[in-house]
């Protein structure tokens, strides 16, 4: 009978069994849930495509190209001497996100600026890569969505964006070939 189930001895053991049942059940549910959640993470084929090689030879000084990497544009810019100088002459105190230009390029390849081309504000793609596009007040990139201005090192100088354009991991395979990712 239901009303007699709490009577008698064996309380401790019964409680232990209920606790064990609830605990194993909980563990089972959590373990069963994980594969379903993890299945939404990038699949093996997506991860395998996570690097891209770019031929730099056709990019003249002053020019930039866009390449696709992980479904996002990456800006590859061959900077002129003046642009590098402009990036390095900045007073660090003026910067929102304080990074030196040196830390954003590879030494020996200072002319090559490689950036994830996604505005750090809300994910739009800044203008300034293609010739004729507005490069903003600092000669780098300009995001038309909410007016963020980036300089020739891709650093945020004006507007709502909180951080500099991100630098992806990349390495130079040769002087004219770079592997991003």
């Amino acid at each position: 009978m239901a009303d007699t189930m709490h009577a008698g001895e064996g309380h401790t053991r019964r409680d232990f069994i209920y606790l064990a049942a609830a605990a194993t059940g909980g563990v089972a549910a959590a373990c069963a849930l994980w594969p379903f959640i993890h299945s939404l993470n990038p699949a093996a084929d997506t991860l395998a495509l996570a690097s891209v090689e770019v031929d730099l030879a056709p990019v003249q000084p002053g020019q930039a190209i866009k390449v696709m990497w992980r479904g996002k544009p990456v800006f590859v810019r061959n900077r002129t001497e003046e642009e590098i100088k402009a990036a390095r002459d900045v007073n660090m105190a003026e910067l929102v996100d304080k990074q030196t230009d040196e830390s954003r390029v590879k030494s020996g390849h200072e002319n090559w600026l490689i950036l994830v081309g996604v505005c750090t504000h809300l994910g739009c793609i800044p203008l300034g890569t293609n010739t004729g596009e507005s490069r903003g007040d600092y000669g780098g990139w300009f995001c038309p969505c909410h007016g963020s201005h980036y300089d020739t090192s891709g650093r945020i100088r004006k507007g709502p964006a909180p951080a500099n354009l991100a630098v992806p991991t990349y390495e130079f395979l040769t002087d004219t070939r770079v592997k991003i990712g």
Binding site: M5, G10, I17, Y18, A20, A21, T24, A28
Partner: peptide, 21 residues
């Protein structure tokens, strides 16, 4: 293996619940 343990625990729990019926 986990399910066998789980079944054992559930069997014990069920037995306990039903003991006085």
């Amino acid at each position: 293996l986990f399910l066998v343990v789980f079944a054992g625990i559930m069997y014990a729990a069920k037995r306990r619940v039903w003991a006085d019926v």
